[in-house]
Design a protein around this nucleic acid. Structure first.
Length: 272
DNA sequence: TCCCAGGCTCTCT
DNA sequence: AGAGAGCATGGG
């Protein structure tokens, strides 16, 4: 039987794309890696596997045309991260952080999945966030070649917080349901926020119960492709006061969201 | 056991 | 407007 996983091709000479850094830096929670360094994941109903090989990346599960059609945008391959790193490196600490995480790319995740994931992330730790999301997909997503799709807002809108008990999200269950219902009813249109004024988008997102400025910024950065969003979590606040006198250097402001990811990855790396 | 986690809501000043 | 408790759950 021919399956789509038989498809394979090699992405040549890719810069600033380290799979481990990009897929396990805390921006997405569903990618996993096996012992041989092969990363696998599902977005919508598309499954792909990737493996770093020097300056190349070995891709399985789709052909080049399919990759260019969908995944190239997901992995933000048209953005010149080298140029950004160069521009923000006039600040010594920013330079260290950016070089430490120079293989990070900001994924363009599905808006609903990003919003829902970061609602779950509040006052939580990353291993547990992953567990809750995994259970959410297993319980309410659709099975697909050994993976599960991320459940749609429509699917979750039909449930109650009690129905989410099996995923053990705690007090966040009611927030997930409120978000799902606002999206499903059309009260909130995530797509339209991609190009909205920042303050307008922030206010719209914060109309969801359990969504404050941090989760809203994450939804914008990771789900709406907005690098003007700058999520301030406990780690970033700590880093800002410890290394940056409270605010981002001016050179990093145009790339605030990307700078934020470098700092997050860097300071957490220092802990270990 | 205790502390904390990619925060937010609610209440009390 | 600002401070602080409470929140569900479980990893370290």
């Amino acid at each position: 039987m021919i399956t789509e996983t038989n498809k394979m091709f090699i992405l040549k000479n890719v810069k600033n794309f380290d799979l481990a850094q990009t897929l396990d830096c805390g921006q997405a929670f569903r990618w996993s890696c096996d012992e041989s360094g092969v990363w696998r994941g599902i977005v919508e109903e598309k499954i792909i596997s990737l493996e770093n090989a020097g300056n190349d990346i070995i891709i399985r599960g789709c052909n080049e045309a399919e990759f260019n059609e969908f995944w190239a945008d997901y992995f933000d391959l048209s953005r010149d991260y080298g140029k950004i790193i160069h521009e923000i490196s006039d600040n010594a600490t920013m330079k260290r952080a950016a070089e430490f995480g120079s293989g990070i790319r900001i994924l363009k995740q599905k808006p609903w999945e990003a919003l829902c994931s970061f609602i779950i992330s509040q006052n939580n730790n990353i291993p547990r966030i992953k567990g809750i999301i995994e259970r959410l997909c297993k319980e309410f997503g659709k099975p697909k070649n050994g993976f599960y799709t991320f459940p749609s807002a429509k699917r979750l809108a039909a449930l109650t917080p009690d129905d989410l008990a099996p995923i053990r999200a705690g007090f966040r269950a009611k927030y997930i349901i409120d978000a799902a219902r606002k999206i499903d009813s059309g009260e909130l249109d995530l797509e339209s926020l991609k190009n909205a004024d920042y303050e307008v988008a922030l206010e719209k997102l914060m109309s969801i119960k359990g969504v404050g400025p941090k989760v809203a910024d994450c939804a914008m950065l990771y789900g709406l492709g907005r690098i003007d969003a700058f999520p301030r979590d406990v780690w970033i606040k700590r880093a800002l006061s410890e290394f940056f006198d409270g605010e981002l250097p001016a050179s990093a402001l145009p790339y605030a969201g990307i700078a934020q990811q470098y700092i997050f990855y860097y300071i957490r790396g220092l802990e270990k």
